[in-house]
Design a protein around this nucleic acid. Structure first.
Lengths: 190, 190, 190, 190
DNA sequence: TATGAATGAGATTTCATTCAT
DNA sequence: AATGAATGAAATCTCATTCAT
């Protein structure tokens, strides 16, 4: 692992654990066993480092989602596989999804351009889900409906599930499975 | 309005707008037209002020939720009214729900006791929802199911909906209404 | 006890326990069960309050020292009684000698006049000791010597003894008795 | 001189001149011609800087005491040389003994561990004196007595002498010499 | 590429003192 | 005399970023 990679890894770990504001250059360089100056050298500034960390996580998420969805027979099945992959990703310690849960581009990034890069990348996630949804409506596995609104419903459920599971103490075993089940019901019975 | 109240109001506005870390004592005292030292005098420190702001919002939310569900005929109706009240609250500019959406007790509060106070207050919200759910199961308006898991499903959908609506640019008109409709379907068709 | 007296008592306790800088108006008024504003009302400012506390202690010390030396037959006996009274005073919880040990007029008081008032009062203590010494030289109980230098020797031994006993962890039982014994020897055998 | 050393020097000067509480980061960094942030960078916080300053002074004191004592023929002579070195150190402008006289670890250091480090270092000073005392009792230059109590007597006299000389206005020329003379008498005639 | 000392702006917090009641 | 809210200056400490090596 190069020092640049070590820095990115440390950043993903620490941003996910402490949040953006509470994570300092000193913490990151120490965790990465690297001199502090190297951070600015490789990534420019804190926000750019966060951007790099978030983008790295998002790209890995997109790869997994695409792979999961490919194996689906119907659109509904694709949506379900998407949900399982998304929630599964949130539990994978090596995936560092917490970076995107504990931090928020909308609150933590002050530069509009940086924020837009990330927001645009994240929208690819929901675009993929919407393509599954549209496929399901076309192939009849999902009853006719506005695919965009249906996608938003699912995305909201996923977002809320991950926050509840990973951030709050209210979470109960079975939350993810049960929520996927209910989401699928809502799609099928609409 | 006393200066103490002015401080709380300014805190709710600014925490909701800029997040915890980006809101400074100077911003709050300036917005409240008050000397900076008064903040510590009345609220002790930044975290305690955030706690006070969050608790104030939560208590008003609970009042509205209680009022809303009281008027319901069946448990299912109570759940639906709960959802509408919760989402409506998130859109009310005077309610300052953004304090609890932009900030997070789990990331922003370092003192365990403070966090627990807030977490415990927030759990009252979901306890109320669960009581509606149980009522619905008893009165037959909701098919038999684990009331706790069903409550978690609804709460996740609400949490995700509010975040999507109020924080992200992905939101589309009709999101709240559509999501409530789907949630109710998922409860009725399970 | 009037509120003014309660404030002085609290000040003596707290200055002696925490030192000048670490003792705040809030601590004093809370300990005295009195409103903070009363402090400035009765004593003007922190330094004047410290002055009042120190003077109160010094005056009580002087009374005790005078009483003690009065009963002495010889000058040497007077010196010894002085030492016993001084060291005894430092152990009396009600005497609050710690105010003058933990704090220091030379470091803590910024106003020259205040400092001089206290310094001048403290010099009365050593003037009394010197008068005992002179008496001892006159009555032959102390061998001929410079009474001022002899007084300084005793005062240094007393000052060091009290600091060692009350502030440091090096102190050993018997320190006071042994030191008085040695001081008397040094006077008699010079 | 590195900037770190410049900071330590400035700290020793200013703590010794104004005391712990009255010495500010701004004063120190200005005196050292260095940015304020460097203080925290090199020493962590004010207390740790004071610890470093005090330890530096103590270590130099110990070196001088050891050197002085080595050249002594008898134990009594060693004790006397110790006293002269100790008091001489207090007058050496480059030694900055005032740091330890004007400030006090018992009042100024809030962290127990820091305090203990310093207290433990200071006890080495008195341990050295006690070893001289024991030697004197063994070699007959000091009459038989409890070496620990005798050491405490001398240490109290030294502590009191330095305070009187360096902090108070009561001091008279010849104080140090006279006090050493009396202390030696007290040891020889006991 | 790599280091870590150095910078300086800014944040929170403390607290003596004032003031209206 | 008594209260405690209110003030604002100052202090400590943090930390992203720069820079010389």
């Amino acid at each position: 692992m190069t020092k640049k990679e070590a820095l990115l890894l440390a950043a993903k770990e620490l941003f996910g654990e402490y949040g953006y504001a509470e994570t300092t250059f000193a913490m990151i360089s120490q965790r990465a066993q690297v001199a502090m100056g190297l951070l600015a050298h490789h990534y420019g500034n804190k926000e750019k480092l966060f951007l790099a960390a978030g983008m790295d996580v998002l790209e890995r998420l997109l790869v997994r989602l695409h792979m999961s969805v490919q194996e689906a027979g119907t659109g509904l099945e694709a949506v379900e596989r998407f949900c399982r992959a998304y929630l599964g990703f949130s539990l994978d310690p090596g995936a560092h999804f917490m970076v995107l849960i504990r931090c928020s581009p909308y609150s933590d990034m002050k530069t509009r351009e940086d924020r837009e890069v990330m927001v645009s990348k994240f929208s690819e996630v929901w675009t993929l889900l919407e393509s599954c949804m549209s496929m399901g409506i076309r192939d009849g596995s999902i009853p006719p409906c506005d695919p965009h609104l249906a996608t938003q419903f699912v995305s909201c459920a996923l977002v809320g599930s991950v926050r509840t599971k990973r951030l709050t103490p209210y979470s109960t075993p079975g939350l993810y499975d049960e929520n996927i089940r209910r989401v699928i019901i809502a799609l099928k019975c609409a």
